[in-house]
Design a protein around this nucleic acid. Sequence first.
DNA 1: CGCTGTGAATTCATTCACAGCA
DNA 2: TGCTGTGAATGAATTCACAGCG
Lengths: 254, 254
Amino acid sequence: MHSNAIPPEISGPSGGIPEATVARLPVYLRALYGLAERGISTVASEELAAAAGVNSAKLRKDLSHLGSYGIRGVGYDVDYLVYQVSRTLGLTQDWPVVIVGAGNLGRALANYGGFVSRGFTISAMLDSDPAIVGSRIARLTVRHVDELEAVVARHKVAIGVIAAPASSAQAVCDRLVAAGVTSILNFAPVVLNVPEGVDVRKVDLSIELQILAFHAQRRSAARPEADPAHGHHRGAVNGTPSRPPVTSEFAAQA
Amino acid sequence: MHSNAIPPEISGPSGGIPEATVARLPVYLRALYGLAERGISTVASEELAAAAGVNSAKLRKDLSHLGSYGIRGVGYDVDYLVYQVSRTLGLTQDWPVVIVGAGNLGRALANYGGFVSRGFTISAMLDSDPAIVGSRIARLTVRHVDELEAVVARHKVAIGVIAAPASSAQAVCDRLVAAGVTSILNFAPVVLNVPEGVDVRKVDLSIELQILAFHAQRRSAARPEADPAHGHHRGAVNGTPSRPPVTSEFAAQA
DNA sequence: CGCTGTGAATTCATTCACAGCA
DNA sequence: TGCTGTGAATGAATTCACAGCG
């Protein structure tokens, strides 16, 4: 069939879906919910693609990896596709999630009630600050981070969200992994070290802003008043670069 | 790689850096700051790559797009590389940022003082809720969103952060674009429509969780006690899929 | 006829492996 | 000698364009 079959993967039934496709399925799912709400029961790839912000060929190829769920000459049945995409993503079961860090960010995440939505339940919020432990956030009482192992075991938590300061993120990560959590969503601005088999995704404001800055700079460089310094190989640069005071920074305290 | 178009590109001097490389430069920069703090002044691609969580060939190729800044047989000068990467990303100038939405999320972002860090300054926080307007967050007084245009013009804001509810995100986006903002970081779970030339990046908790769920499901499917339902092509599914009550959901209120 | 599903072509990204410089 | 920088090889993702089904 498609691509090769040798990767760690067992090119199983619904197996072997390309990463890029997996990353877009949630977007399609959201678009489908939007259509369903508006009472639309059938949709062509062109429209769905527009709603999801991709081109239609890509959408069709993506969906083809899940199976042949469209109707030629017609389009896709919205409810049915919602179901198939949900099932593929593993959203037909509930995933207990633990959030570590109940600072500003942790609170924001917990309050995303409708956001985390279908498929995910916050089992507990944990923090190490005694001033925060015991407070209530989004129907939950914040518990001490020492209860992490107990919470994970009790609720069979498979997904951990790290909303802790950069300085403790790795330690939190280690505890989550040791407790058996194999999926981690990291909001702290650090590269986490994890053993094989643990899946880490990161969300990083600072990186996103820097990428935007790059493109913004690029755009404004269209103007001919270009940058003055442009020495290429070393030494050519006027004196020492000496740009960065190189202080700490890049250390968040959520 | 992201939803929106990458500027047509003039393969200029420091121009034509691949998107994938641009996305990693901030990670390298952070790793470099970490090394500098620890007093390390020179680093080989192997070590820097390890600190950044990539392999060394990729790191070298990435850096080669900025110029020839290494020393064969030795490695890279940390301070010098910090400067070159910063300059490439456009961080040697300051970028005024406006945050729209001062709910939980907006507050969390504003309080990431050390996070947003070098290169970015929050010009203003805006909200439409009269109960929030006037309150102080991270040294700033929240202003009414009607002042958006004035703030953008006054501070020459080029980057806007949308931390507003999904329901108003598009409207906020339109106003930002009309006011002249061409770089947008969107935290609301919606696909934003923008004209050509506007760069949008998104940060989406729900999508990240769903991607994690996919892989988690995949892993647990390794066990032979597989999932019960596994009907393939249509009709084969037991009765109606009828899985989703298809209510609203997926609508955040930051 | 109008749409999906998909081979084939293309573009983009990663990795290998080594020539060549400090 | 030990590293960087980079062509060449491989692999992944996107896009094209159309055969073929409902």
